[in-house]
């Protein structure tokens, strides 16, 4: 699996396929990126579970915090890790002890641990690194285009008006995934300065 850039269909398949998402490192502070990514994914109809041992006993948008993945107590489709790269491995190891295993482990924008990714993939789990599911959902649905962002997709179909809890179509025509983006080359060069 090439983690320097992802085919849009890979990301699309994940975001179309998963229903429940446990967010490790979710913050109740409403100016933190994890808070608003959590809120956005909940608004788009995902079953969100906040995981943060520092906030057990509190709720995040009416969902109770749990201390660890093991405490979720039910199967979860995707683990979204809102921790920096040095804290990824223990979370992945914890995820690998779940039964059933999650289908996807997603590491947030800025987070990348290739060894942890390899471990998860060896167990048959799909991995995404250094991406934000909110941004990717907004990009593939073109909702993010309101911000002048290049969605790298086209569509001649009329878009629906998004409402609370509504899943948007992610099935627009992709412009060849990320392969041509200079930004992906830069990310690769940053990860591998040689």
């Amino acid at each position: 699996m090439n983690h320097d850039n992802y085919d849009d269909n890979y990301i699309r398949g994940i975001l179309n396929g998963v229903k429940s998402i446990a967010m490790v490192g979710a913050s109740p502070v409403n100016v933190r990126p994890s808070y608003f990514a959590f809120k956005y994914l909940a608004q788009r109809g995902y079953d969100m579970i906040p995981v943060n041992p520092g906030h057990v006993g509190k709720n995040l948008l009416d969902k109770p915090f749990v201390a660890s993945l093991a405490d979720i107590g039910r199967p979860v489709d995707m683990i979204d890790i809102f921790r920096n790269s040095t804290h990824i491995m223990p979370v992945v190891e914890e995820a690998l002890r779940l039964d059933p295993l999650p289908k996807v482990i997603w590491m947030q924008l800025g987070a990348r641990d290739d060894a942890a990714a390899a471990k998860a993939e060896a167990a048959g789990i799909k991995v995404v690194m250094n991406r934000c599911p909110k941004i990717e959902y907004g990009r593939l649905s073109s909702e993010i285009s309101w911000m002048g962002v290049n969605s790298r997709t086209l569509s001649s179909k009329r878009a629906p008006m998004p409402t609370q809890g509504m899943r948007l179509s992610l099935n627009r025509t992709s412009l060849g995934g990320g392969e041509t983006a200079a930004s992906d080359r830069a990310a690769k060069n940053k990860a591998d300065p040689t």
């Binding site: 849009d8 269909n9 086209l154 992709s174 412009l175 060849g176």
Partner: peptide
């Protein structure tokens, strides 16, 4: 599998716009 990459003229007409 990636979709076909549209050419420059297609992008000039379509990119960013939908009904």
């Amino acid at each position: 599998m990636n979709d076909r990459l549209p050419g420059f003229s297609t992008l000039a007409v379509h990119a960013g716009a939908q009904p």
